[in-house]
Structure formats: structure tokens, C-alpha cells
Nucleic acid binder design. Structure first.
Lengths: 136, 136
DNA sequence: TCATCTGTATTACTTGACATATACACCAAT
DNA sequence: ATTGGTGTATATGTCAAGTAATACAGATGA
């Protein structure tokens, strides 16, 4: 599992961790039942304090993404009957919700908003995921 | 012009000010050339420090939303040839951009994403204010 | 039991954002 | 020049977020 963090990016390290783990789950790279690296392992790999890893894990547990087994590594939680596609749709809806609010507040016509969305999707043609690697 | 700030909302006061002023401009309530209240006036109305107002104004100037006239009140800047509808569309595009990135990263089908957007727009039909655009 | 994994509660340090008080510079009209 | 308006540079205080050092607790397996 590929995880990269940049301590100077402005985004808190624990949040970078959460985002990347959730992303791997959403794409199916991490499946329900998979074990996550121990706090100390990940800690030494990434060069950050174990507590920072633990913080990310705790939040993920609170969000029901991961399951705690006392004295054992954390595992990816399986939500019964939820497919990868479901997860992607959930994430999409969450991402769209603030825009939906805005469209209503500003009184933008729905068809206009949909047209704009379609144009943006077709415009930006670089569809590849880009991860910023911090080489030394 | 109605401006309300809540010091305990978690959102910085200067940012609440910026957001509301930009919102009023986008909806057309504040037009190019309109004067903004002086820092001290707004300060005493809202019960916050004049410097906080000044900070908001400075950022708005940096964003080219407002124009500085030495020794005189700030005025809403007029961007030549930009209609209210243009402003709304700009804001919509900005709001959608992160979602667009996400859709591409996760490999969600465009039609699927558009369908979801349409459903969200039609679903949450809560009674938010709708403004009519009579600006061409 | 002992050694060694696991996670984490507690505590403290550092840092940056936010808001404020004060004082100053500028401009326009007296 | 004086008065009263404008905005703001500077320094200070406050507070919360992020991270880390330490020490502890539960589980596992020899």
C-alpha cells in the first residue's frame, strides 16, 4: 500500500493519512478485512510520531471506516452489502453537497448548473491521478 | 446591506465578512461603484475591532473584489463586461472543481456523476431564497 | 512467565491564526 | 492649520491545532 505524506504541505499529516487510506478503500485497493500497518511500522516508514498515526486511526474508527481489535492490528471494516461503487457514489454525493447548497442560494438554473458540470468534466482531459512525490 | 457575524461559529469573523460581502455582490445587492461602510462604522455596528474589518477589506482588495480610493470609502470594483450571471457561473465552477478532480481520480462515469448531481438538485428542494436574474 | 508485539492516554511543546489596542498617515473640508 | 473622516502598520495577547515524548495496558506466543 502506497502512502506518502508531506509534513510541509499545510495539510495535517494525520489528515493526509486518513484521506489516502479512505481513497485506497474506495478504489478497492484496500478490502474489508485487510490489516492496516501497525502504528509503529508506519511511524518509522513515514518518519512521523506513532501518536500521529494513532490519531488518524482513531478518527477512522470513529468514522466507521476501520475496526478496532484489542491488541491486534486494525482492519478495514466491512459494511454489509456495500460495493465499491456505493462507496464512490457516497463520496461523490458528499463532495457535491456544498455545491448544491450554493446553486440553490444563488438561484442558478438547474440545467445551467448541469451543463457547467458536464463541460468541466469534459474539459479537463487529464484524467490521471496525480500524487505529489517529495523526492529528496 | 445586511451583515451578521457570529464570533463563536468557528469561522473567523474576517472570513464571514468577506463571504457575505462577496455573496451580496454575486446576487446583485451590492453593485459596482457602491460604497462599503467604513471600518469604524461597521466595527461599531458589529461589535468587532476595526482592524478585523480592515483585514477583510484588505483581502477583498487583493482578490480584486473591491477598489481602494485613498482617504475615501472602499467601493465595489466593476469588472468590465462581467454580468451577475457571469459571477454566479464563476462561483459555480470554482465550487465544482474539486468534485471534478474526484470524479476523474475515482474513475466515475460522467453520466453517472451528472445523474447524481441532478438528483441532489431536485431532492433537496428546501425553501432557499431564489433570485431572478434580470441581468444580461 | 517473559518478551514483544499491538494501540493509546496523558502531558507538554511549538506554531500559527485570529482578534485586539494603540498609534500613525493620509485626505477632504473647514 | 485644524478638525474629523478615512484605512492600516505595529506589537501584543489569546487560543486551538498539530505533533511529539513518555509511560502505560491488553494480547500473543514461546
Amino acid at each position: 500500500m502506497l502512502i506518502i505524506v508531506d509534513p510541509h504541505s499545510g495539510v495535517p499529516v494525520y489528515r493526509q493519512l486518513m484521506d489516502q487510506i479512505k481513497f485506497h478503500i474506495t478504489t478497492g485497493l484496500l478490502k474489508p478485512g485487510d490489516e492496516l500497518p501497525s502504528t509503529r511500522t508506519l511511524s518509522s516508514e513515514l518518519g512521523v510520531n506513532p501518536m500521529t498515526i494513532s490519531k488518524a486511526y482513531s478518527f477512522l474508527e470513529r468514522e466507521d471506516v476501520v475496526e478496532r481489535r484489542p491488541g491486534r492490528p486494525l482492519v478495514v471494516k466491512s459494511l454489509p452489502g456495500e460495493t465499491i461503487k456505493d462507496k464512490k457514489m457516497d463520496q461523490l454525493k458528499e463532495s457535491l453537497s456544498s455545491t448544491v447548497t450554493m446553486v440553490k442560494q444563488l438561484g442558478i438554473e438547474y440545467e445551467e448548473a448541469l451543463k457547467t458540470f458536464r463541460e468541466l468534466l469534459e474539459d479537463k482531459s487529464d484524467a490521471t491521478a496525480h500524487y505529489k512525490e517529495d523526492d529528496k
